[in-house]
Nucleic acid binder design. Structure first.
Lengths: 331, 331
DNA sequence: TTGTAGGCGTTATCAT
DNA sequence: ATGATAACGCCTACAA
């Protein structure tokens, strides 16, 4: 049987209430009993039952991390940031992904909250809708969304517009005027912002925005890049550069296919991605891309949610992080 | 305030014990009350407080996943496998990594067990020692280790020896006789097994094992590959092929550096990695490597641990999965 | 079929 | 400074 407060209390000749106070470092305990109790606790290798404690304190001391799909390298990297923060986090991380489940993010969140399973939630998703986020806001459990801006909730995100603008600026400065833009067909907020940044840059340089240069892809995998290559070449042969807000894997697919079709990169075609995944450095030519500070995003998220849980912060907070263009060989 | 069993009981005109039995689908409840209770529960949007339930049942319904370092792509992939199993898993996953913590894997495990935080544990680590694993065995909480074989504990692992043997066979069949072997200097069991497989293959083909052809690297990053390239070239210029049990990133570093030094791959140098990470497909030339079935490993692990927790399995179980050599361009 | 009562291991509020 | 005692919300004999 596990050792409990009561076991310690009996041996120490005190009551379990006293032992509890010692364990929790409460004041007003005589040095003698404190020492005695701690000694016995150590001898018995006592650990408090966190579930019983949770019931008494109404705290689970754990935070939920909800992700739509753990297969995304972006998501994993943010998760790493959450786990590797410098601050000593006294909360356990419970991981949930919704892919293939019959609950969506907000339903899951609501359940977790009502079951009192978690004290707070970090949602990592760029595609969650405003309506869904409202459900988060309406529960009594603190929550924060990572990867998109949100008025009604704490959030951590990057300046997508500026990142896209920087990337397009860079291509224009290199002399390109016919710049295709490959976006995800899941038109979440970040997609829109990146497209806006692209337009902004064109406009800043007095270049026309051409609807025909915008291409949509189904997913963010390498095959999407391979597939969209042909579309671009067929419909817009004059294109000399491609900006790929849809993500680095798509950009890599594009590069691979371009090389197969004997296009030289960056001389014939310049390519800029978005995100800076590990493979970006490895592909040949290596990929110029807009880096998102994923570890920092996770770091901010966990610290913000803990502050919120512990009442050190109130009101809605936002943290916008800058992107950084990483110049490599593809552009 | 949250709605509790008692709230439902009052409205239904029964006692909370009855409501509990309804919620938990126990028999011997009249259809009338069952319906009435469920109706009210739904109206009030009732969810059981899992912490209170846990205290009463002495179950947390969550399993811990302990990893030495979440930055490893192998670990992440196994984690994905754990989360994406087809079976409906009624357990929450709590994630712990030990990097930068003051507890090692077994201390952490012991604490989690004693705190009654988790009903079972999956440890993803190839480098954990036998002594540490004994601590796992000695706690009363079921546990399983992924990525290395272990006599005293349930385990899921690949046949490293056969994987390495296949890879070496392949190189020998391609006509190579001077085959370097690049291993990690953390001499865990898998490293040893892979080295054994390499030796086995040589022996099978009546080739001598040469100690001088074995090179150790510090970590499994790309820079290790870059660094070890020079060592191999300087000390063993006759080498025409390299097998890299240390991992794909090392192999990729090796390839990148080889290309920079004007070595043609695979004509001048053939390279075979181990693991099959996403970047292996993307690098140029793409990497021939020994694939580890990471998703399957996670899948087996979660299912085995759940069976163990729920008493459907007893005794020590092992699952050995086969590797598969993925032929690409680098060899 | 349902109610009563006690317990799960803590914490917290009073007394003393 | 410490002890009684009552929560916390749920489960489970056992009794009715």
């Amino acid at each position: 049987m596990a050792v409990t407060l009561k076991d310690i209390a009996e041996r120490a000749g005190v009551t379990s209430a006293t032992v509890s106070m010692v364990i929790n470092n409460k004041p007003n305990i005589s040095d003698a009993t404190r020492k005695k109790v701690l000694k016995i606790a150590k001898e018995l290798n006592y650990y408090p039952n966190v579930i019983a404690r949770g019931l008494a304190t109404r705290k689970s001391n754990s935070i939920g991390v909800i992700v739509p799909n753990l297969a995304s390298s972006f998501v994993v990297r943010v998760l790493q940031g959450i786990k590797s923060t410098n601050r000593d986090i006294d909360y356990t991380v419970q991981l949930f992904d919704t892919v293939g489940q019959n609950e969506n993010e907000s339903q899951l969140f609501q359940r977790l909250a009502r079951e009192r399973r978690i004290d707070g939630v970090i949602l990592i998703s760029s595609t969650v809708t405003d309506e869904e986020l409202n459900i988060f806001r309406d529960e009594s459990v603190p929550s924060i969304v990572v990867a998109r801006k949100c008025d009604s909730l704490d959030s951590v995100y990057v300046n997508n517009e500026m990142g896209a603008c920087d990337a397009t600026d860079y291509l224009i400065e290199k002399g390109h005027t016919q710049i295709a833009c490959v976006i995800s067909n899941k038109l979440g907020l970040p997609t829109k912002e990146r497209l806006d940044g692209y337009k902004q840059s064109l406009s800043n340089h007095n270049l026309p925005f051409q609807e025909d240069l915008v291409f949509e892809v189904e997913d963010d995998g390498i095959t999407s890049g391979v597939e969209v290559f042909s579309r671009i070449r067929e419909r817009q042969p004059a294109v000399s550069a491609v900006f790929v807000p849809a993500g680095d894997m798509v950009a890599i697919g594009l590069i691979k296919e371009a090389k197969k079709r004997e296009l030289r990169i960056p001389q014939d075609w310049a390519v800029v991605g978005f995100d800076d995944i590990p493979a970006a450095e490895v592909v040949e030519p290596s990929l110029t891309t807009v880096r998102q500070p994923k570890l920092e995003m996770g770091d901010y998220a966990i610290n913000m949610i803990v502050d919120k849980i512990e009442g050190r912060e109130s009101g809605i907070k936002h943290k916008e992080l800058p992107t950084k263009i990483i110049i490599r060989e593809s552009a």
